[in-house]
Design a protein around this nucleic acid. Structure first.
Lengths: 270, 270
DNA sequence: GAGGCCAAGTTATCAGATACTTTCAGTTGC
DNA sequence: GCAACTGAAAGTATCTGATAACTTGGCCTC
């Protein structure tokens, strides 16, 4: 049995309804489309009641309960999937997603593709947020978070020792580098900050590898780089927020220089 | 005439195609669905060729040229609309959108709704970025940007003089406040930073008004607040990046205290 | 008890049809 | 000449009905 909306609203035959704004339904804004209704109801369901990982009712059931056709439900689900609220896959019911970095990541990547100047802008933003990350980590880091940072450092050292110029060894080092910064962000206890930094890292990935290339080309000592990271770790572990901030700032300024030198070397100014 | 894909692929009768991964088509990944194809093609069209404001071909034409049904095109368009790449409205063709703050805004708002602790995290992020904004503005601000900041300050002063406790007068002051920070972000020349700060401002709007309430309740002098803003402006105009940073930092720390005091007053700790 | 097979549930996709909106050009009225 | 009305054309919104492919869980075999 249909719960509240037993009769489905069919706009094809409803030439009278649009002219009567407040007819019948209690919560239907005047110029409301079926899609808007579906979106509203579904969003209420998703962010209002469901937990991440929950499964929504099947399309047919949703159509029945909300009172629009299955097609409209599908389109609403597609919009919400685009916004990253749910995940859709064939044969399985829609699942509620934990908010993660993919939405923002994608947004930033598109922005970069549209205008490559965004890269420098985002790098500047990242620097600022990494400094915040170091500062808050020094204030709040717990035992587990510090252990994670330490583990990332170990891996970084191993990857540095094994560097032999192959793409694979470089990739391994970069992975450890990213893992360190990720652990640091986690240590800050600021989950939104983690999310943002993760988005930035993934959309700026290309630039990171380039700045590493610049570092190597400039004859940089990889052990120095590892030491920089370890220094940050120590200051964070000691709870020295100001020191950690400064160390991170220096570290990133060096990285930025490496990228610049790589860019000016490979692509001479027009 | 259909250009390349003259025969439409109908998965209902295509029980052989999925078993033959690399059959025929050059650019069709193995387990590719019609929706994925449509998304890929449309994205290429949108971020690859079109400018913001351009109109895409009609659904029917897209269906024809991409070689999927109109339904699939519609669903792909809905996904892209959810990602903020295009805008859809009845009777009009899909239009390409300029990347703006709404996507991120919405993401942040949902995150806040899911877990209200995110508010404090985002406020901390905002502080960090506002400081960056002040610093970069001091370095790069042009004449026009400075004029915009000055205008916002004037409006703030007028709104402050007219403050009489009514919601409307408070709203007017807050609007001017937001306009000042927006002008500052513009002055920084970092468009991505502007976007991010705008998103943060709109999803934290509620907190802003609360921190203002805290300011007033604590017997704050509104003219002091305006002076703080003017001081930031002067340092930016002078090109004193470090000074502007510090002034902004102080300003926001005061604001954070106001919010705290308001929260502890209205909602005693559990 | 492990592995494979079948059935039910669910999504993906096509086709055809109708109602509502927007846009633009042509016409009318001043 | 120009402004306002009118209508057709283009286009999106939505519903209905049907089929194919995928996922999952239970049953059956060995």
């Amino acid at each position: 049995m249909a719960s509240t909306a037993s009769t489905r609203w069919d706009p094809r035959k409803a030439d009278t309804i649009p002219t009567m704004p407040t007819a019948g339904a209690d919560d239907a804004p005047p110029g409301d489309t079926a899609l808007a209704i579906a979106l509203r109801e579904l969003e209420e369901l998703i962010v209002g009641q469901a937990e991440a990982g929950d499964q929504l009712p099947a399309e047919a059931a949703l159509a029945e309960s909300i009172g629009v056709s299955r097609l409209t439900i599908r389109e609403a689900l597609k919009v919400l999937a685009g916004q990253g609220l749910i995940e859709l896959s064939r044969g399985r019911r829609p699942t509620v997603r934990q908010p993660d970095s993919t939405v923002m990541s994608r947004f930033l990547s598109v922005a970069i593709r549209r205008d490559s100047r965004s890269v420098l802008e985002l790098l500047s933003i990242r620097r600022s947020l990494e400094v915040l990350s170091a500062s808050e980590a020094a204030k709040h880091a717990g035992r587990a978070a510090l252990a994670a940072m330490d583990a990332a450092l170990d891996q970084m050292q191993r990857a540095a020792d094994a560097l032999d110029g192959t793409d694979e060894s470089v990739a391994r080092y970069n992975t450890a580098d990213v893992a360190f910064h990720e652990a640091l962000a986690m240590a800050s206890g600021n989950r939104m900050l983690s999310l943002l930094l993760e988005s930035l890292a993934s959309s700026l990935h290309h630039s990171f590898t380039q700045s590493f290339a610049g570092f190597m080309a400039a004859g940089g000592d990889i052990d120095d780089a590892v030491r920089e990271h370890r220094r940050i770790f120590e200051l964070v572990a000691k709870g020295d927020a100001l020191g950690a901030e400064r160390a991170m700032k220096r570290h990133l300024e060096r990285t930025a220089r490496d990228l610049q030198s790589h860019l000016s070397r490979t692509a001479p100014p027009a």
